[in-house]
Design a protein around this nucleic acid. Structure first.
Lengths: 188, 188
DNA sequence: GTCTATAAAGCGATAGAC
DNA sequence: GTCTATCGCTTTATAGAC
């Protein structure tokens, strides 16, 4: 019989897929087993503290991805226009290829919200602050930059909800496009 | 011993509170009992089909509220500026007083998403279309009206996520305020 | 590192007394 | 209309073989 030997990041990736599809609470060990073939033994080997540990690992992996692909590029940008275009493209591609689910948003609902409150807050704070920085570099006032950054992150998150509700990625892509344009639009 | 005799809408209201706090799946019968005092007997008297029935009743009640307080006023508006101001105020008050949770958005995550896909889609469609109508009344082009309406609903939904993430209603109120201003802002 | 068997607790749902 | 007791099932978690 074929046995697959996994490493931890494979397991985390598989868990993320299940949690996106079924939610953190709906992603039970039997569903995980069924959808990924990963059994209880492996799960508790990699995550000795159980399900909370699994959720933490998944959120950490998402957080690392955004740090590297979105936040750092924004913080080190020299061309605001390009930085914002890059962010929009990367974010759109990320969520479209991941069922239009943001796991950080997902965990603000349900039982474990308090457990991950700090991680959730930093995820959104980092994003908004990095984006604010780019807008200030582009010459916007601190207040205007902060407001536009917050609105952009909000409309992206709301766009994910509407994409799931409509069952239509195109809706989300349109929202991201317009958000991109609004970020550097001339002040009225 | 005191016995409370409930009517159905009281129970639905209590259920909505629990589901907002704990999610649909986290709101188990024992949690409901513990938080509301409503026992299994009453629950299955009002909702013979069980938990799915409870979720449906809660979503129906939310839907009715929005229909009456938000969608109908938008559809019958004659003064766009006032209609949009009224909507913003009503929506802000609604969500602030309900833990910044939109149950229609919440149910797009988790196991029961397919069961309620149709209801979710109409909730958002009705909202966006009613708002689009007001914007066209205000003289915007069909495309511009539809885009702005969609963006406004999205930014409100995303604002709820950020409000929960930040643990701060003020963030949400700012987002709603700016959304209101953007809706009727002059075309650039 | 992965497996299976199993424990202990919790789940939704039902039945029947009041 | 509400209660409690209970059923059958699933859940997370553990133990021990391989």
């Amino acid at each position: 019989m074929a046995r697959t030997v996994l490493d931890r990041s494979d397991v985390v990736l598989a868990l993320a897929g299940v949690f996106r599809e079924r939610g953190f609470e709906g992603g039970s060990l039997s569903v995980i087993k069924q959808k990924t073939g990963i059994g209880r033994g492996s799960l508790y080997h990699f995550f000795p503290e159980g399900k909370t540990d699994m959720a933490r690992a998944v959120l950490d992996q998402v957080s690392d991805w955004f740090e590297e692909k979105i936040f750092v590029p924004l913080r080190t940008a020299t061309d605001p226009q390009k930085a914002i275009a890059d962010m929009s493209r990367a974010v759109a591609e990320y969520f479209i290829s991941r069922q239009c689910v943001c796991l950080f948003a997902a965990i603000t609902l349900g039982e474990e919200q308090e457990t991950f409150a700090k991680a959730v807050k930093s995820y959104f704070t980092e994003w908004v602050e990095a984006l604010t920085g780019v807008l200030r570099l582009a010459g916007l006032s601190p207040q205007e930059a902060a407001d536009r950054a917050l609105d952009a992150v909000a409309v992206i998150q709301g766009g994910l909800i509407l994409a799931r509700a409509y069952g239509d990625d195109q809706t989300f892509l349109g929202i991201v496009d317009r958000a991109e344009n609004n970020l550097l639009a001339p002040t009225r």
